[in-house]
Design a protein around this nucleic acid. Structure first.
Lengths: 126, 126
DNA sequence: TTGCGATATGTTTTCCAAACCATAACTGGC
DNA sequence: GCCAGTTATGGTTTGGAAAACATATCGCAA
């Protein structure tokens, strides 16, 4: 890929979208979605980011309520106790958020670099 | 200006830059810088955003310590009790942050709009 | 029918950033 | 020599979010 120009550092740009009401989407929920997709479970996803199941679940609930169609579909019981997976809507939201991150990081690289260069301790390019 | 295509809504994209160490720059500090520039005083700036002087000052201190050159220069006593103003570095950081916001909002408008359109209650375009 | 692993949800406790309060120090002008 | 208005700091309090703890439920498989 073209992230050769952005071997950057530990410098990170995190963005959060605030919608009119209380709804918002940020790095936390995006990561959670991603891990749910990867693990197939809310509990497992939470574990990988050392987040309590309760918190993970409540974030999922928030998202499912905020969007017209739920982003996460979950089932209880069964062979492995149950599980969860991203819906079509969930995949769409996640991928768009990720792409948004990518776009902004690229578009703003120069300005970010400038600000970063003015710091007292320039964090060494890791 | 060209913000005709972005009469958007109350939907807002807020971004925060995390640097390697604890230093970070986000909407709060940017707003504070802007108001200090406009009012010529840390206290007045804080007042306009209903932020305690203490907090405003500690944010300023944080920034001044994080950057090689202080972003805010302040003086005590005198005719009007004192005051504060942005240094050259302060102006630079602020304007670059604002421009960064502008760029990202523009570059990501389509994706943001898509996600927003999937919300249950589409916040009416204000 | 018992057990397991996950979802689902309520209750209590903890913790920390922010708010609040209080005080000192500076300085030009009156 | 005070006064006004601000910068500069220290201490205490607290509101609210996150963590921690506690259950209940589900459904397949053995």
């Amino acid at each position: 890929m073209t992230d050769d120009a952005i071997h950057d550092t530990e410098t990170r740009l995190r963005l959060r979208i605030y919608f009119g009401d209380g709804a918002m989407l940020g790095p936390g929920k995006a990561d959670l979605l991603e891990r749910i997709r990867d693990t197939g479970s809310i509990a497992a996803a939470g574990r990988t980011m050392s987040m309590s199941y309760k918190r993970a679940w409540s974030l999922v609930e928030e998202m499912n309520k905020a969007f017209r169609e739920p982003l996460v579909d979950s089932t209880r019981g069964g062979a492995k106790g149950g599980g969860a997976h991203l819906t079509e809507a969930g995949e769409t939201v996640l991928s768009n958020y990720r792409k948004l991150e990518e776009i902004t990081a690229e578009a703003g690289a120069a300005r970010i670099g400038l600000i970063r260069s003015m710091l007292r301790d320039i964090p060494e390019g890791k």
